[in-house]
């Protein structure tokens, strides 16, 4: 066969076969992946909104929100609301920051009505292993410093990493990822303030 026909033909056949492999793999895994993500999220939710702080069905009462400017959302996200006796007790607020070292970092912050943080969870990140990824809880305890923090304890002006004149530890040799996360947490606190004010005005 003429090689000008053979070569493109072979490339086309192999591309077709490898694409088929990927399609089949995607088809076999996407439900399981979604399930795993959901399970991880439910586990995280247990810490974001502890059992003693809510008596409602978190999934049923969840709301869809979309705030590209304030919370960096790229698509609509789910806001989980914990209630006791039908009064809001904790919000679990999703936020995205584009300022990570390698693309977006997705976090979720649990905040009680009094503005105090329960925990911060890193949902997705692609930071450098050993440097930026020390922001996740099972790699270092950096993220724990935000638990029980609030804008009453640390005002807006100081809500930064130490390197920038704030009060929060950074990670030495990797300031970019902690800086991004610290700022995203601040944004969720501001959102929380606005949310609670709106509720106050409505009732």
């Amino acid at each position: 066969m003429n090689r000008f026909i053979k070569i493109p033909l072979v490339l086309a056949i192999v591309t077709f076969l490898t694409s088929a492999l990927l399609m089949v793999s995607e088809d076999l895994t996407h439900e399981k992946i979604a399930e795993q993500k959901k399970m991880l999220l439910l586990q995280s939710l247990k810490q974001l909104i502890p059992a003693e702080l809510h008596d409602n069905d978190l999934i049923a009462d969840a709301q869809t929100i979309h705030h590209p400017e304030l919370l960096g959302h790229r698509k609509p996200q789910t806001l989980y609301i914990g209630k006791i006796n039908n009064k809001i007790s904790v919000l679990a607020i999703p936020a995205t920051t584009p300022k990570g070292y390698s693309g977006d970092i997705d976090i979720m912050v649990g905040i009680k009505t009094n503005g105090e943080i329960t925990v911060v969870k890193i949902l997705e990140q692609h930071e450098t292993p050993g440097l930026g990824d020390l922001i996740i809880a099972n790699k270092s305890d950096w993220i724990q410093q935000f638990s029980n923090q609030s804008l009453h304890l640390t005002n807006l002006k100081n809500w930064k990493v130490e390197r920038d004149g704030g009060v929060f530890d950074q990670i030495s040799g990797a300031t970019i990822s902690p800086r991004a996360v610290t700022e995203a947490i601040k944004q969720t606190l501001l959102y929380h303030n606005g949310f609670m004010q709106n509720i106050g005005e409505e009732t």
Binding site: T18, S25, K32, I33
Partner: peptide, 18 residues
């Protein structure tokens, strides 16, 4: 071939060893 196999492997690890 290598890129496709690794991508498929990545999907399976994501699904079963999340």
């Amino acid at each position: 071939i290598i890129a496709s196999v690794v991508t498929a492997l990545e999907m399976f690890m994501n699904a079963y060893f999340h």
